[in-house]
Every structure is written in structure tokens, then in C-alpha cells.
Amino acid sequence: METSVEIQNRLRNLFESQKLAVVATQTGGQPYASLVAFVATADLRHIFFVTARTTRKFSNLILDSRVAILVNSSVNLESDFHEAVSITVTGIADEIMDHERQDILNLYLAKHPYLEEFAKSPSCAVIRVAARSYYLVQNFQNVMEFHIDR
């Protein structure tokens, strides 16, 4: 079995190698999935993404801050079934305001420099997700859970 440190490294590597994640939100019991550019902190406690305030996912988040995020390394080949690693993160989202916003944007733009104009737009919100649990899927169906002790 992999140790906690090995698993955390695996999560970090995946978060660094992947630019996009799928974010799931809900309203009135109707789930909704969207693709976002994300960045994770090295301690794996937080995941950030930027969204326009006009989006459905943003309005869903205002009503219910619970989210699930999926990051995976699939490349659309058969080999994905045994080679791809996928992580589902569950957690609580909130919007970052004021001075904190700039620090987070620096972290975000270091990974996604091409999104500067979008991310800095006043119509966009910087969303922070405090991760509660990670669900790591490997070898097609092997699933391990990791719960962050808060």
C-alpha cells in the first residue's frame, strides 16, 4: 500500500500536470457540471478556479457552496482504462475578496498565464474550495479515500 506521503505526491503531480478540472454544482437537486482552469495549493488543502459571475455555476454556488471537482489524466485512448488516474475532491466553495484575491491570482496566473485578462476582469470571481475529502481512482476501479482533518 502506498504511504500517505506517496499518495500526497501523486495528488500534487496530477494537479500540476492537469490544467482543467470538471466542477459539479447543483441547484434544486439538479446537478450541473462545468469545465474550469484550476490551481491547487501544495498542501492540498485548497483548490482555486476563476469564473465569470454570470455563469450558472456561480449562481449555483451562491445557493449551495458544496462542490465536487474531478481532475483526471485521461488522454482519450484505451490505455486510459488502466493508466489514467482520476481524483474527485469534495469540499466547500467561497469567493475570495480584497487583498487575498491578488495573492491567489498570482498563484493562478503562474499556472495559467494566458488567462490574465479573463482572471483579472472585475466580472470574474476567484473561487476557493476548501477540500474535505479526496477520492483517488486508479487501475480503472481501485478507489482510495483521503479525508482532510480540519
Binding site: S4, I7, N142, M144, F146, I148, D149, R150
Partner: peptide, 14 residues
């Protein structure tokens, strides 16, 4: 016992 606040648990094993 959790180490560094990261608790591992198996969910689905093959």
C-alpha cells in the same frame, strides 16, 4: 492515527 491531517481510507478495492 492521522498523520499530517491526512487520513487514508480504502473505498473500493479491486
Amino acid at each position: 492515527t492521522p498523520d499530517d491531517g491526512f487520513v487514508i481510507q480504502a473505498r473500493q478495492l479491486i
